Simulated scan of single mutants.
Amino acid sequence: MLSWRRENQAEAYQVESGRRGDATAADELAGMSSLVRRLAEAAAELAWPTRCVCCDAPGELLCASCRSRLGWICQRWACPTCGAPYGWVSCTECGRSRGEAWETRACVCALPLEGAARSLALAYKDAGERRLAPVIAATVACALDEAASWLAADGAARFDASAVDTVCFVPATRTAYRRRGFDHMLDVARSLSGMLGLPLADVLARPHARDQRKLGREDRLANASSSMRVVGDVTGCSLLLVDDVVTTGASVRAAARALLEAGASDVTAAALARTW
C-alpha cells in the first residue's frame, strides 16, 4: 500500500511539475511577445513620431495646449434630451419644446463638433488613428461625470453609473467597416466601459445601412430606422449607448428604439460631439 501511494505521489508530482513547466513556458512566451511589441512600438515611434491630431505638435496625440482649448459643452445648459448645447430651457434641435420625445432617457455630448472635436473624430475614423480610442473615451467619461450632477426629463440624474447595467455602442455600417477596417465605436466603448467599471455588450448590428454622412435629415432617419438590429439579450437592462457624433440623432434614436423593443428597460446615450 505504501509503495502504491509513493508511486502515485511520484506520478502526481511529475504531472504537477509538467504543469509548472508549461506555465513557466507560457509566461516566458508572453514576456517575449510583450518585449517584441514594445520594440515594434519604439521602432514605429522613431519612424513615424506621434503628433497632435489638432496642431501637429510632436509628442502626444492631443497635446496639452489643444486639450486646454477644448470647447466643452456645459451640461448645466445642455438639452437633457438630445445633448445640444444651450437647449436646457427650450431646444429647437430635438423638438422637446414642442412635446416631441426621444427614445433615449437622456443624451450627453462632450464637445460641439468643431475645432478639436472635429479633428479627433476625423483622425480616428477616417485616418485610422486607433490610439485615439481611449482619448475619446476619456472625453466622454468627463462629460458623463459632469452630467451626473444634472437631471434628465424623468427627474433622475442624466447619468448614474450605479444604475447602468452595461455599455453598448452604435455599430458601423457594413460600408464604413470595409472602408476603415475596424468598427470605430467598439474600441471607444471598450475603453469607456473599463473607465466606468461596467461590462461591455456588443448587441447591435447594421447589416443593411448606408453611410449616414451622405444623407439628408429625412433620409438619415429612414436609413437608421430600417437598419438597426439587436443581436443579443438586453431584457430588463439599463444601457449606456455610445456613439461618436450626434447630428440629427437618427442613429442613437434608432438604436435606442431597437433596444427598447428588444426588452431593455431604458437607454442613456453619450457621444464625443454634437452638431450645433
Rank of each mutant, 00 (worst) to 15 (best):
Leu144Trp: 12
Ala222Val: 13
Arg210Asn: 08
Arg217Ser: 06
Ala143Trp: 04
Leu113Pro: 00
Gly21Tyr: 07
Val267Ser: 02
Gly249Val: 10
Leu61His: 10
Leu221Cys: 02
Ala121Cys: 05
Cys91Arg: 07
Ala26Trp: 09
Ser193His: 00
Trp88Asp: 12
Ala147Arg: 03
Val188Met: 04
Arg51Met: 00
Arg96Ile: 04
Glu11Gly: 10
Ala43Leu: 14
Leu221Ala: 11
Ala23Glu: 12
Thr139Phe: 04
Asp211Leu: 10
Ser119Lys: 14
Gly181Cys: 08
Asn8Gly: 10
Glu129Trp: 04
Glu93Trp: 01
Arg5Asn: 06
Gly197Cys: 09
Ala270Ile: 08
Tyr177Pro: 00
Cys66Asn: 11
Leu35Asn: 05
Asn223Gln: 07
Cys94Arg: 03
Gly194Glu: 05
Leu61Gln: 11
Arg51Thr: 04
Cys109His: 04
Val230Lys: 04
Cys74Val: 13
Glu103His: 15
Ser191Ile: 09
Ala47Ser: 08
Ala156Cys: 09
Ala172Tyr: 03
Gly95Pro: 01
Leu259His: 06
Ala106Pro: 14
Asp243Tyr: 03
Pro49Tyr: 03
Thr268Trp: 02
Arg5Pro: 00
His184Ile: 05
Pro171Cys: 08
Arg174Thr: 10
Ala12His: 06
Ala127Asn: 10
Leu62Gln: 03
Met228Gly: 12
Gln75Asn: 10
Ala255Asn: 03
Leu113Arg: 04
Leu239Arg: 08
Arg190Phe: 06
Tyr13Arg: 15
Leu151Ile: 06
Cys109Ile: 01
Arg130Cys: 03
Ala271Lys: 06
Ala270Trp: 02
Arg253Gln: 15
Ser17Tyr: 13
